[in-house]
Simulated assay, not measured.
Amino acid sequence: MLHFGQGFRKEFKKHWQLFLLATPGVILLFFFAYLPMFGIVIAFKSYNYMQGLLGSPWCGFDNFKFLFASNTAWQITKLTLGYNFLFILLGLVLPVMLALAFNEIRRPLASKIYQTISIMPNFLSWVIMSYIGLALLNNNGFINSVLHMLGKESVYFYSDPNYWPAILILVSQWKGIGYSSVVYLACICGISTEYYEAAILDGASKWQQIWYITLPSLKPMMVITTIMALGHIFNSDFGLFYQMPLNLGQLYPATETIDVYVYNALQSMGNVNMSAAASVFQSAVGFVTILLANAAIRKIDNENALF
């Protein structure tokens, strides 16, 4: 264990190269992760620009009361939680299935091509994705053009919020499935081939090898990714829910999550206090969720707990 004082000086002298390598990362972590945490006090103050951060009067939990006193508080919270539960479930199942499929491709060149194609959407910004969606879903877009050719009536995607839960889920998984599958594929590649050779000698089928060897080996990574995802259960991908539906008011019943609501409120009312309160609330709930999820995992299977 590293001790301060004489023990620290001894360790620093012994491993000064490692400390030197870690210095830039520690500095960046301090300035971009720890120093901004001082801004949490805005959530508990009636902040105004004239008095500044330190001079603004304290208001306790009034900002949090204002945040949840609106008529849409339950709606935006329900949407945020509902979408995130689906994203966590699909983000756990679909990437694993895709990684298993990639692992069965025996030609290295074909495997690399398929992996590259699947991961490419991850590098597209949500602005570009919104324009792609507009080209497909607009009244004169590709989908409606095909419907006209088939003699069908147009579908007004940007006027009816009922279509957007399916659209947002589909786009989200299409954009992120490739990156997540590569992570699981790396874990699969690290499994010793001796297990599969022994299973083949015992007459195990391919499905039995996947069920009894591959999936148990992926279990630690699946648990870690699930726990980390639960930490963002009250957060939403702002680009997905703001850019993709073009922030249209008629789609708010299906697209206005907590982040979108706070941003729109900040833009229209300039209420910095409520925005800070929402951020603190999301972070605090996410932190507690991680602790609870890890505690549950520790009781079920202590070896796969995150900490």
Rank of each mutant, 00 (worst) to 15 (best):
M1W: 04
L2R: 14
F4W: 14
G5Y: 11
G7M: 03
G7E: 09
R9W: 13
R9S: 14
E11V: 07
W16T: 13
F19D: 00
L21T: 06
G25I: 02
L28P: 05
F30P: 09
F32C: 09
P36K: 03
M37S: 15
K45T: 08
S46E: 13
N48T: 04
N48P: 03
Y49W: 15
P57W: 01
F68Q: 12
S70Q: 15
S70T: 15
N71A: 15
K78C: 10
N84D: 02
N84P: 03
F87T: 14
L92P: 06
L94S: 06
V96W: 01
V96S: 05
L98I: 15
A101S: 15
R106N: 14
R107Y: 12
R107W: 14
P108T: 00
P108G: 00
A110P: 02
Q115G: 07
I117F: 11
F123Y: 08
L124D: 07
W126L: 05
V127L: 12
I128C: 04
S130F: 01
S130D: 00
G141I: 01
I143M: 05
G151M: 03
F157N: 01
S159C: 06
S159M: 06
W164A: 08
P165W: 02
I167S: 00
L170T: 15
L170F: 14
L170Q: 04
V171C: 09
V171P: 05
Q173S: 11
W174D: 12
Y179W: 15
S181Y: 00
V183A: 13
L185K: 09
C189F: 11
G190I: 03
I191R: 01
S192C: 09
T193N: 12
E194F: 10
I200Q: 12
I200C: 09
I200T: 09
D202T: 05
G203H: 02
A204L: 06
K206D: 12
K206M: 14
W207M: 15
Q209M: 13
I210G: 10
Y212T: 10
Y212L: 10
T214D: 03
P216E: 05
K219H: 15
P220F: 04
M222L: 11
T225W: 02
T225L: 11
T226D: 04
T226W: 03
I227S: 03
L230I: 08
L240V: 08
L240I: 06
F241V: 06
Y242S: 02
L248V: 06
L248G: 05
G249W: 06
P253C: 04
V262A: 07
Y263P: 05
Y263E: 07
L266Q: 08
Q267F: 09
N271T: 06
N273E: 10
A276P: 08
A278N: 10
S279W: 03
V280W: 01
V285K: 01
L291R: 10
N294V: 05
R298D: 05
K299G: 08
I300P: 07
N304Y: 02
L306C: 01
